[in-house]
Design a binder for these strands. Sequence first.
DNA 1: CTTGACATAGAACGCCTGTTCGTATACAAT
DNA 2: ATTGTATACGAACAGGCGTTCTATGTCAAG
Lengths: 216, 216
Amino acid sequence: MARHSSGVMSQLQERILNFIRTYEADNGLPPTVREIQTGAGVSSTSMVSYHLKALETMGMLARRERSSRGLVLNDPHQASPRDIFSVPMVGVIVASAPAPTPDADALRSAEEYVYIAKSMVKTPGDLYALRVKGNSMIDALINDGDIVVMQKVNDINNGDLAAVRLMDRDETTLKRVFKEGKRLKLKPENPTMSPFYVDARRAEIQGRVMCVIRNA
Amino acid sequence: MARHSSGVMSQLQERILNFIRTYEADNGLPPTVREIQTGAGVSSTSMVSYHLKALETMGMLARRERSSRGLVLNDPHQASPRDIFSVPMVGVIVASAPAPTPDADALRSAEEYVYIAKSMVKTPGDLYALRVKGNSMIDALINDGDIVVMQKVNDINNGDLAAVRLMDRDETTLKRVFKEGKRLKLKPENPTMSPFYVDARRAEIQGRVMCVIRNA
DNA sequence: CTTGACATAGAACGCCTGTTCGTATACAAT
DNA sequence: ATTGTATACGAACAGGCGTTCTATGTCAAG
């Protein structure tokens, strides 16, 4: 059998590929042929060129001719930065306090970020994340420690899941909201529970819930 | 006033920065000085060098001396691919069927991916994602359409949230699992509900829940 | 054994690329 | 008027870099 015919990588080729991956992760750009040579322990630049050509034929990477560092790995299930939203974590949501609605400064100064795929967000816009404290959101199927990704919106659409501050009870809650005249219908996300109604003037919409994330 | 002293970018510098961003997104690697020259409409390479140095001083980017394409943008809240896990979506979990536990092939051939930050995963390992169908997971605070990120594990630790197949009822459920002799204690994630017990031989652990994601 | 495909070494070629140098212009402060 | 700073241009240098060429080695198939 030919040693590595179609599609089977040699040890050296695997080493080269791994080196490129590591190098990119560490440096943010692809390596040169000579960096691959020393980094992956290849004896000459021509060998690197040779194997890169082979790897390209196998479809493991794409190359640009005569272009320095002109190689791009073909890792299909590798997230590209442009597919990802970085959502700043700006605070905590507890039932007994209004949820933060951050301004541009707070968004920039956030120290922690949640990453979510752009494909999971239907409508673009200013996103921010809150950590849920306590288990008062149980009827929205949200637990202590969960993260909710919120969107800053001026107004909500009927049926949006939103953070609502109920002034009479002095608490914030996450519910599906429907406008019905002067009342708001608040429907728990938990289908075993019944909706209830509040005076629209005694409730303040604080944001729209885009996504809930729980670590188990 | 000095025209652009500390920290304020000139139009040209902004154009250069934008070109670099676009170029990287399109090509997967940073541009050369001369590519910036033509791409951003700069008159000479020395001008590019000049402004890159200025941008570096401002902290907008980092440079590697004498290294081709040796520049890395400083976009703080930009996700880097190395911070992201791409989790393949391999199927659906419904109460009335065993949850898929994919092999290596299924993981590679997945067509949809969920991206989650590595910082959110405590223990590394083979991850895969399932979409939840129906609302039979309500007592685990999981709704129809939610995504659960699972980890392939051989054995679970006491207190892990796991997918358990109950043979007697012929259904799969997500519960916190504790081994108690020959029995398993299954504790709903919903604190208003009570735990219950099953014969360990009549229950099959199908995976460990790492994370739950819900789109609202 | 011969053949042919694959793998390897080393060196050289020539373009690519970052850098620098000399010169020049515009403008504000002195 | 002079000085200093920011900006700009074009050319040239030196080393970086991808590529290619020749010669050699290895191993399975015929």
